[in-house]
Each structure stands twice: as C-alpha cells, then as structure tokens.
C-alpha cells in the first residue's frame, strides 16, 4: 500500500491505496467523493473528469499514487458553498442534463475550457467536449448552456 498526501477541493487529504487503484477508485471508494462517475474506466467517456493544474484529467486514467502533492478539483468543488458556478446555474436553466450522469465530468471539463478560453466558438466547445459522452441530450442544450455561460461570464468579467 502507498501513502499519499494531496489537496482536493482545497482540503488536505491523506490516504493509503493499492498501487493499482486509480484516482477515481480513491475518490469514490476511499474518500466518499462520488461526484466523479465511472462510465467506462478506460478514458473513453469523460464522466470521471477532474481538474488538475487547470486541465481536465480522466481520474480513471491516473493512479491514486500519482496524486501525491497535486491540487485536484472535483465536481463537488465547483460551487462556492451555496453559490453555484454560472455553468451549474445555466446547465439547470437550459435543461442541459437529462439523466445527469455525464454532467459532473462535463462541468469540470467546461470550467477548465472557459478559464483557458473565455470566448470559444461552438466548434471549439464541441471538440473540447468530444471526450465527454452524453447519450441523452444530443449535446444541443449542453452546447447552448456553455455558450450562454461564456457570454455571461465575459459580460461580468
């Protein structure tokens, strides 16, 4: 077993894990952070996306051991207490989720996009999110919610 110290959503965490355990396994089974979902376990669906160093990462494709010293944001860390992130507000307002299983990964990935590129085109949003599978919506309302949020955030910046 390996001992690991890391920061998740601003809080310090220590855990021990088997070297084969992924960061996703650790988040869900050891730390009780079940917001990141396992849709495939092989990096194809994006439901387990977390943010590390301003970039989205599939937590199923990273070992728990590799989290040593990292600062990690999960979907549970996107809102500021009771204040939802504008993306969260707009996903609800624009009905950008049906079953909601892909939503945590999409929110984390999109938040990273808007921090890197506050004014993305529709095509840029679609390609950025190509690794986040959604089977319910046909992506239409997701893309609209992202574009709307980006515009709102630019106005309020």
């Amino acid at each position: 077993m390996i001992q690991v110290s890391t920061t998740i959503n601003g809080d310090e965490h220590q855990f021990v894990c088997d070297p084969r355990e992924t960061l996703l396994d650790v988040l869900r089974d050891r730390l009780g952070l079940t917001g990141a979902k396992e849709g495939c376990g092989t990096g194809d669906c994006g439901a387990c996306t977390v943010e590390i160093g301003g970039r989205p990462v599939c937590s199923c494709l990273m070992l728990g051991a590799e989290a040593e010293g990292k600062e990690i944001t999960t979907v549970e860390g996107i809102a500021d207490g009771e204040d939802l992130h504008p993306l969260q507000v707009n996903f609800i307002k624009h009905a950008a989720l049906q079953c909601g299983i892909c939503t945590p990964g999409i929110l984390v990935a999109t938040k990273a996009l808007l921090e890197e590129n506050p004014n993305p085109t529709e095509t840029e949003v679609r390609y950025w999110l190509a690794g986040n599978l959604c089977r319910c919506t046909g992506y239409d309302k997701i893309i609209r919610a992202v574009m709307e949020t980006a515009a709102e955030m630019r106005e309020n910046a």
């Binding site: 869900r28 952070l33 079940t34 549970e76 996107i78 939802l84 996903f91 609800i92």
Partner: peptide, 22 residues
C-alpha cells in the same frame, strides 16, 4: 420551463446513482 427539482443535486455531484451507495 421551470428548473428541475433534482437540478442542483445533479450539477453538484450530490445526486446518488447506482454505484454511489455504500
């Protein structure tokens, strides 16, 4: 077109799906 009642749970990671219970 009101907000769905499970919206906040689903955008914050709080909603509990099949694999989320222990």
């Amino acid at each position: 077109r009101p907000d769905r009642p499970d919206g906040i749970d689903k955008v914050t990671g709080r909603a509990s799906y099949g694999a989320d219970a222990s």
